[in-house]
């Protein structure tokens, strides 16, 4: 059933969204439940994008709304003792590529689903991915590649993780406009998608959810 939070998120109605979240908190709803609703709403936004009802700007607005809701007093996950993040995901755009619109949307969706995220930015080297695995111990690595010639670079990152004997410690998902079946097989990731909300579901399944 669609409650007000889901509907407000789906409709990108900022005022209604903030109002309903504050109300839900006052009524004693858990952050976890609210996040779940936000995420359902965000999934509907993603669906509307896929079917052409929403546009790239709407995805960006949705991401921005999620960022804002996490700032509402009492909404952030780590303020809760009883609930942990679903997992930790480090996401970056492959080196030599500076496109980050899609990557940022994926990160917002992860946040809203209850993941802790590390945004590595754009033009991220293989060494930096290796370093973040060593220092931050993420469960999952997300690599975004938009330019069509990024296959070799993505492979280089994954090879580098492998050579550092860290491959077994992380799951790797690749996404972005450059990614397809052929590229996926070539680079040696664990999964790929061109759809950010599907990416979140893949991450969830890796963490044993659903």
């Amino acid at each position: 059933m669609k409650n007000d939070i889901i509907r407000a998120m789906e409709e990108l109605n900022e005022e209604l969204l903030f109002h309903t979240i504050r109300e839900a908190l006052q009524q004693g709803k858990t952050v976890y439940d609210i996040q779940n609703n936000l995420n359902l709403g965000l999934e509907l936004v993603g669906k509307k994008y896929e079917t052409g009802e929403y546009y790239i700007a709407d995805l960006i607005v949705a991401g921005e709304l999620i960022k804002q809701t996490l700032k509402i007093e009492g909404m952030s996950f780590h303020t809760l003792n009883d609930r942990k993040y679903l997992g930790k995901v480090a996401v970056g755009t492959v080196f030599e590529d500076i496109h980050d619109v899609g990557k940022d949307i994926f990160i917002s969706m992860l946040n809203s689903a209850g993941f802790e995220t590390i945004d590595l930015g754009v033009d991220v080297s293989a060494e930096k991915f290796v370093q973040v695995i060593k220092e931050e111990k993420p469960d999952i690595i997300g690599i975004s590649g938009v330019l069509s010639m990024m296959g070799a670079n993505i492979k280089r990152i994954i090879d580098c993780i492998d050579e550092s004997n860290l491959r077994s410690q992380v799951k790797i998902i690749v996404g972005g406009a450059s990614v397809n079946n052929k590229l996926f097989e070539y680079v040696g990731a664990d999964s790929f998608t061109m759809d950010a909300s599907e990416g979140v579901n893949i991450c969830k399944s890796w963490m044993g959810i659903q």
Binding site: Y49, G52, Y54, Y55, I56, A57, D58, A177
Partner: peptide, 12 residues
Amino acid sequence: GSQISTFVSPAM
């Protein structure tokens, strides 16, 4: 736009 969508809605 991108390959599959426009940046803004036709109305905008």
